[in-house]
């Protein structure tokens, strides 16, 4: 636990340092308004990363999150076009349920057919995008076709922060409680930490992985609506390639790609780090291509750090050292 805490401290320090460096060159970046906007802008990544974290904790991976987001977002937009008067609650419920259902497809394939998760989600990723094309024949749904309350909801400000940012915070709080305090959260850590031991303990490994995919899908569905509403556009390729950013946020946040280790807080920091990099670089006039290089370097540093902390954990042979740890 202490290794995780210190890793989170390091990451938090890195984000602060980055912000400070940018502030010296461009003080406007650290005004409260701008920081809130950076946070809000990063919320979709944070929400998706928390879902992805759950999946990675169970030794799986979900590459279909961005495609799930795009499909659910498109369905929400089409419902809005067909029935502009529908209340927001219905749209949100549709987004959550459809996202969960798409996640459940991944989960069932992994659980019942024991297909490797990377193969399953690579397949569903393409299928989901394909379905969008079949639904729309490649046509876009643009801002003027959507109703104002549909596109306005995530942007409404409460206490100076848009609803999108608040949703990020609410999801984070729920996920923290679920992961730390629920039996399911405990099962997720157990399955990733040692699947063999989990089986003997009476935990159904496949079922737990199924739930992880459902959680990831639900959050992707939610983000699907928020994304489409915020950018006021829906088409086949929205959030293309975004699944890689999501995985990157988890890895930078200290989620072990081997499963079983990682926290909601770390994942949030990982997402925020990428968010700050993405938002700050254009401000200080650095080419956005540097952003890719920095994200990549951060991933490698994070993985190297994980590997190192894993290695240093040797056997405690000395009696005197046993309590010192």
């Amino acid at each position: 636990m202490s290794a995780l805490k210190s890793r989170e401290a390091i990451l938090f320090g890195a984000i602060l340092a980055l912000t400070t460096v940018i502030a010296t060159r461009f003080p406007g970046f650290v005004t409260p308004t701008n920081l809130v906007s950076v946070f809000t802008d990063t919320s979709p990544l944070m929400i998706l990363a928390m879902g992805q974290m759950v999946v990675i904790l169970t030794r799986c991976i979900d590459l279909s999150v961005a495609a799930n987001l795009a499909l659910t977002g498109m369905v929400c937009a089409m419902i809005n076009v067909a029935m502009p008067g529908l209340p927001m609650v219905v749209i949100l419920v549709v987004a959550l349920i459809l996202g969960a259902a798409l996640g459940a497809i991944n989960g069932i394939l992994v659980w019942k057919l024991s297909i490797p998760p990377i193969v399953v989600t690579l397949g569903t990723m393409t299928i989901f995008r394909g379905i969008i094309f079949l639904l729309t024949e490649g046509k876009w749904i643009n801002a003027h076709e959507m109703s104002p309350h549909f596109t306005g909801f995530p942007r409404n400000e409460i206490l100076g922060m848009p609803v999108l940012g608040w949703i990020g915070i609410i999801v984070a709080l729920i996920m923290m409680v679920v992961m730390a305090r629920s039996t399911m959260g405990r099962a997720i850590y157990a399955v990733g930490g040692n699947p063999h031991a989990a089986v003997y303990t009476g935990i159904d490994v496949g079922k737990t992985q199924f739930y992880a995919f459902v959680i990831s899908g639900t959050l992707a569905g939610l983000t699907g609506y928020l994304w489409v509403a915020r950018y006021s556009v829906a088409y086949v390729d929205i959030a293309g390639g975004f699944e890689l950013d999501v995985v990157a946020a988890c890895v930078i946040g200290g989620v072990s790609i081997a499963g079983g280790a990682g926290t909601v807080f770390g994942t949030l920091l990982g997402a925020l780090f990428l968010g700050v990099v993405k938002n700050a670089l254009p401000v200080v006039d650095i080419s956005p291509f540097w952003q890719l290089a920095i994200s990549g370097a951060a991933i490698i540093v994070a993985v190297a750090f994980n590997a190192k902390s894993g290695r240093s954990k040797g056997r405690v042979i000395l009696k005197s050292a046993e309590h010192a740890q």
Partner: peptide
């Protein structure tokens, strides 16, 4: 097959 090394003692015991 016995323990989950990354978990604290109490969580292993109550699993």
């Amino acid at each position: 097959q016995g323990t989950i090394l990354d978990m604290p003692i109490f969580q292993n015991v109550t699993l």
